[in-house]
């Protein structure tokens, strides 16, 4: 059931990403909703769930991009996995942390995407503008992170079903 709900979120956020946010750019840059979703899942349910969600949401997005298929999938999965591991080591959850997670995950995801892209021969990424785009996109992710985390908390299974290490503290 949780898998089905997450799948619905993957599709809904994916469609929003390709149809709506292309019109709502921040300084010409779009956010990474799929990455935010994966990170939110990783934060709530651990690295494994986050990586799987990241792979699915990235792959959905990849079908609409000209970069090699699965490049976003791989970068989202790796970033979400790392966030899940870091989350497991956190003793407490500071207030208002979601924008910070969005920002850091956006930066990490962006650099992983660019690094892998260059490795796989995407010439468009070999430019100084890439840094600027990654930074603005990460800022945009930070703005949207609270909404995506709220969506995940609202539409996935109740708190008691999350692994104990990932339960939100009051």
């Amino acid at each position: 059931m949780r898998t089905l709900r997450v799948a619905v979120l993957v599709v809904v956020l994916g469609v929003l990403q390709v149809a709506f946010f292309t019109h709502a750019r921040l300084f010409g840059v779009v956010p990474d909703l799929g990455l935010l979703l994966a990170v939110a899942i990783a934060y709530r349910y651990g690295p494994e769930a986050g990586a799987l969600t990241g792979f699915a949401s990235g792959l959905f997005f990849d079908f609409f991009l000209e970069t090699p298929l699965a490049l976003s999938a791989l970068s989202y999965a790796l970033t979400a996995y790392a966030v899940g591991l870091i989350r497991a080591g956190m003793l407490r959850e500071p207030r208002g942390i979601t924008p910070v997670i969005g920002l850091l995950a956006g930066l990490a995801g962006g650099f992983v995407f660019a690094g892998l892209g260059i490795l796989f021969g995407v010439d468009a990424l070999r430019d100084t503008r890439t840094f600027q785009v990654i930074f603005v996109s990460a800022m945009y992710d930070a703005l949207l992170a609270p909404a995506v985390f709220w969506l995940v908390n609202r539409f996935t299974l109740p708190e008691r079903d999350a692994p104990s290490a990932y339960r939100l503290r009051p």
Binding site: E48, L52, L69, A70, F120
Partner: peptide, 21 residues
């Protein structure tokens, strides 16, 4: 298991990227 899942995802991604290019 986590590492195994990640490894499978990485290998799948690299395979798809190679096939696509």
């Amino acid at each position: 298991r986590r590492r195994y899942v990640l490894l499978v995802l990485v290998l799948t991604s690299v395979t798809l990227i190679t096939l696509d290019t």
